[in-house]
Each structure stands twice: as C-alpha cells, then as structure tokens.
Nucleic acid binder design. Sequence first.
DNA 1: CAAAATTAGTGGCTTTACGCCAACAATAAC
DNA 2: GTTATTGTTGGCGTAAAGCCACTAATTTTG
Lengths: 247, 247
Amino acid sequence: MTASDKADEQRFLEEYNPKDYLSPLVTVDVAIFTLIEGRLHVLLVKRANHPERGRWALPGGFIDAGQDTTLSEAAARKLEEKTGVTAPYLEQVYTVGDNTRDPRGWSVTVLYMALMAHAPTAAFVDSVADTRWWPLADAMGQDLAFDHRQLLDAARQRLSNKTAYTVLPVHTLDAPFTLTQLQQAFEEVLGAALEKKSFRRRILSADILDEVGEAPPPGGRGRPAALFRAKAGLGEHAFVRVVGEGK
Amino acid sequence: MTASDKADEQRFLEEYNPKDYLSPLVTVDVAIFTLIEGRLHVLLVKRANHPERGRWALPGGFIDAGQDTTLSEAAARKLEEKTGVTAPYLEQVYTVGDNTRDPRGWSVTVLYMALMAHAPTAAFVDSVADTRWWPLADAMGQDLAFDHRQLLDAARQRLSNKTAYTVLPVHTLDAPFTLTQLQQAFEEVLGAALEKKSFRRRILSADILDEVGEAPPPGGRGRPAALFRAKAGLGEHAFVRVVGEGK
DNA sequence: CAAAATTAGTGGCTTTACGCCAACAATAAC
DNA sequence: GTTATTGTTGGCGTAAAGCCACTAATTTTG
C-alpha cells in the first residue's frame, strides 16, 4: 500500500458514517434442546414486546454492539440469560435474511442450536417469567412468532442429520447415564429404532465414554446397568457413525 | 390479539425508525469453485475500493435492500455478475460477525459456497476486469482482503467434508464426463486417492448419472470411456457415500 | 423363599459392503 | 501386428453390520 493509498483510506474511514447506510437488523436466535423423561424438548419464550407480542418464540434478539464481540458470544449470552448455564454444545445452523420476515423491513437472523442436560436448568428456567420447556411436537404445533417455526424445524433437522455421524445426543443427557438411555436419546432424536448390539459395539469402540461404576438401582427393575459419562473435551468433534436401521 | 394490542402494534411500527438502531453492516461473500484441467480453482476479485483496496477478495458485497429480497438471491446475483452464469450448486456455509474484522466496526458476513463447470464461465470471467480463477493453493497462499482467507478455508473444508457423503464434485465438471474424470474430481477435492472399483460400484448403484453414449476419442489414448451426465434435478440432495481409502 | 417378570449385556451366525488385484476390452502409437 | 495405455469387470478375502437367541442380575409377586 503506497503512502497516498494510506491517506486515501484514512480519509475514507473518517468520512464513513454507519447511519448513512440502511443496514438490516441483525438478530441471533437459539433453538435449545434437551431431553425430559426421554422426550425431546425445546425452550421457548413468550414475547413481551411488539412485534408479535404474546406469541411464543425462540430465545434471541438483537446483537448488542457494546456487549457482544462475536455472533456466537451473543448466542451464548442469550442462552445463559434464559437457562442459567453454559451449554455443552452450541452450533451455528444457518442464517435467514429477507424483507418479509419482519414487519420492520430487511432483517437477518443467525440461528444457533444448543444442546444441554435438563436437570441443571430446571430451577432457573422455572424462575424466568414466560419461559418454559416445550415438548417438540407441541412447540411445532403452534403459531410461533415470525418464522420461528421454520427456524425450529431447521435446527431439528440439523440435529437429526448430524446424529447420523456424531454423538450429539450425549449432550442432552444428565450424566451419568446408561447405554440404554443413550440409545433411547438417539432414537428419540432420529425418530427411528436402532439395533442394540450394533449401537453398543460402535459407541464402545468409539472410545468416547468413561465408565463410572454400577447403577444404584433408582427404583428401576431388572438388571442394573453400567453407568457412563462423556469423556472430557468431547465438545465439538466426535465423528462416529452410530446408526443403522435395526428393529 | 386484542384490538388494543393491534393499535399498540400499529403505534409501534409507526414510531419505529431503523436509523435509531446501530445495525451491523451485512455483506454476502461467495467462494466459487471450479475444476480447471483437473485442479480446483476459486474465483477472486481485486478490490477496487477502500478498505483493503488492491487486495484480492471473494466476490461479494453489501446487500442491496432495494434489489435483493433474500440472502441467497443476493449471493446468486453477485455470482452471476462475475461469472455470467447461474451456478448449479449454491449453499450457505456460515456467518461470521464481530467487531474486529472490518475497520468500520461491527460487521456480519454470510458466506456461500458455489460450484460450477469451467467452460461456460471462461469467456465471461476473462472479460470482467480484475477477476480471475486462481488455483486454490495460490489463492490460499496470498494475503487476501479482510478475513477472506479464513472464509475460503471454511468453504473448502465444507466442500471436502460434504464430498464424503454427497456427490458435490459433479457440479465442477463440464458434462458429459467420464467416470475417471469424476473420480479425479473427487480425489482433487478430497486430497486423497480413491479405490476405483468401489468408487464405480457406489456411484453407479446410486443411480444419479445418465449414460450418454461413447466418448469420441479426443486425442486420448487407451480404450474410450463411457460418458455420463448428472441426472436432472440433482441440485441439492444426493446423499451417497462415495469414499473409502483405497490405494 | 421360589418362581416369574424385567431389564442389561453377550455369543455367534448370516449377510453385505468394501478393498484389492488380476483379467479382459478397446483404442492409439510404433 | 505388437506394444502401450486406459477403461471395465470378475472374483475373492476381510471387516463391519444386522439379527436373534441366550445368559445375567436384579425386582416383583404369590
């Protein structure tokens, strides 16, 4: 860059005023999933303000240019405000933007998906007004704010697609868990039954779980199961194909 | 919604002024890949304006709130402006946003990846000033504008990851093509050799190609190969695992 | 306290997919 | 014609996956 170029750029930046540009509003929304009594649930918030006041919506909102330095930080912040915890798994799904989804004009939303165990969130979520876990089918069945029904559907699809070659569902369970619970989590997310022997072979040979002794029979019948928890640092990458058809 | 609610909302919308909000600038960038003489190339544009004037960058720019009604439409528009064609494959990769990547402050970029055959673009691309196809390694080797090196890398990774379970590389070839060419396209994208028999077994049993007669020997040696083209409507979904290790 | 019920975990056979390599086929170069 | 070169197919050994029944360790029930 020559000296005159540098001067040029300086001038450019001084003359630049963001209010001269009509930029879209940018929001971040998060589809937070957990497993409650074996069923997949999603966290929704009843909107307190216009537009769409009174409708249930995914947690989210505007970027706070002062507070947030990164999109994923913004997503993590919104998530913690509603659940009180840091999610063990947070992933960007996709971004929608157009001039029809919000009455205010061009708007852009970056959708994230998060997974977490239910127990640590239960008390906190109860304490936040107009916020609750919904069974996924019920959430999809109602008239959500904006295009959140589509967003939720996209997140759900991402989750089940990725479950074909990762171990994402572990993040929805409270540790420690049994292999049967884990298999049921996979089955719930996939909406399909898995073959027991194959599932166990693959999960165990993937070497992503630590065994933590026997199950103290919590009122359960039958032979007590071995207990496991996810190995530390299993945050992002754990590519394991754990799926077939099976009865 | 009650009547007073409706009035409320009306008032809200009338009082709303986008210039009251400091929104991030939103841009769309596209990593356009093609295969030239068997090597993967990416289209870059030399920036004509500040900031980063003179550096090579991915095609892209601001959303035109007047012209674009959708993010992907904006991406398609930028792509067509530079290549003269409509890409057979366009996919959103991910969105970066923070307050450090652009000297103007908070900015958000939605990254797309596109695949296309080279031949139909060659003449047009030549005619566009400061725009050319770069061999991928050369593109990655230089000092690209903004964080475009990372964006390009992310797009490349998405392409090779997805090639493990889709047939994306077909979109980089001029039709018709031979199975050997297709295999070489896969190998170039994956950076690894594939086993011939397995590759053919899977591609053919996937039933995504139409055979179009014999190859007119174009100066080539050896037995002439059968020619194929992708079945119509293979745009998005064609999930086929076509990869192993191989010699 | 014994038998039945229930859930966890394993053995072992069958089937399928894949990697590998060699044979065969069709063309150009010499 | 013979050789070199590239495309295409056959067939076999191996590893993984599906399947189903059997064993194991508990609680429940009569």
